[in-house]
């Protein structure tokens, strides 16, 4: 089983989001970067598959040199090799195009991505990548069972779930449920030592047309002051929800 896990390098969930250069760029100073949480579930799932069926796990990231710490962490968790496609990941079509060029030559049986990256939140790269590779795409995947080349998949749908059956190769965009939180692996000393010797290959990015550019960012409007209501006077809340907020 040849597995590719696409890893996005994102600000830790506790990060305060601040912009610089006239709000045109994310200010990464003082921010800790991590493996995108959804991708971490995917990586652990890949480990489970490898442990039960054998195979290799490659992790790939489209990013500049700063993302190598994140790829090393994935190697320390248990991936066998890492590939970094050297460019700034500024547009989903561009990132997916680069990933497709790379993956198109490698014949992976299974490609695992996250449901979305917690910075861009595009939910875009996985689907576009699957279309380029012409393999099925299962979004919001919360269950995967592989038997030879047959896969049973569960995906989250609005207010429920759907079970699907498919044939490898395929691409899933995963999230919690693929494995549970308690299954997530923290790199151990031995893993970290071994990761140093594992290959991390840097590939130059080819010219792919970008579809979008970000002009600038803004923060959501600040909330005004909170109106405090006496716990013994909940009628006042009901009245305000009716007359002021107009929601009931």
């Amino acid at each position: 089983m040849k597995i590719l896990v696409c890893i996005s390098h994102v600000p830790d969930t506790t990060s305060k989001i601040v912009f610089k250069n006239d709000n045109t760029e994310f200010d990464a100073s003082g921010v800790t970067f991590v493996i995108n949480p959804y991708d971490e579930f995917g990586l652990t799932k890949a480990m489970h598959i490898k442990e039960s069926m054998g195979g290799t796990i490659t992790v790939v990231n489209v990013g500049l040199a700063a993302t190598e710490s994140t790829l090393r962490k994935a190697l320390a968790i248990g991936a066998d090799e890492a590939v970094r496609i050297n460019t700034e990941p500024t547009d989903a079509a561009f990132v997916a195009g680069l990933l497709a060029e790379y993956a198109g030559e490698e014949n992976f049986d299974l490609i695992i991505t996250g449901r979305e990256s917690i910075d861009y939140n595009g939910g875009a790269v996985p689907g576009i990548l699957s279309a380029h590779l012409n393999i099925p795409f299962v979004n919001a995947c919360i269950g995967l069972d592989i038997n030879a080349d047959q896969a049973t998949l569960i995906r989250e749908i609005d207010g429920g779930k759907e079970t699907l059956q498919g044939k490898l190769p395929l691409l899933i965009a995963g999230q919690k449920g693929l494995v549970e939180e308690k299954d997530l692996r923290i790199p151990a000393m031995r893993g970290i030592m071994m990761a140093r010797k594992k290959p991390l290959r840097v590939v130059e990015a080819s010219e792919i047309h970008k579809q979008t550019t970000v002009l600038n960012y803004q923060l959501p409007d600040e909330k005004g002051a909170c109106t405090l209501i006496d716990p013994d006077n909940v009628d006042q809340l009901v009245e305000l929800l009716h007359s002021e907020a107009k929601v009931i």
Partner: peptide, 23 residues
């Protein structure tokens, strides 16, 4: 941007070579 919408939209965008803007 529903669960099914998210499963279809990137495929449409990729095949049409369209700019894809979500959310």
């Amino acid at each position: 941007n529903t669960s099914n919408g998210k499963a279809i939209a990137p495929l449409v965008a990729a095949k049409r070579k369209a700019a894809f803007i979500t959310n």
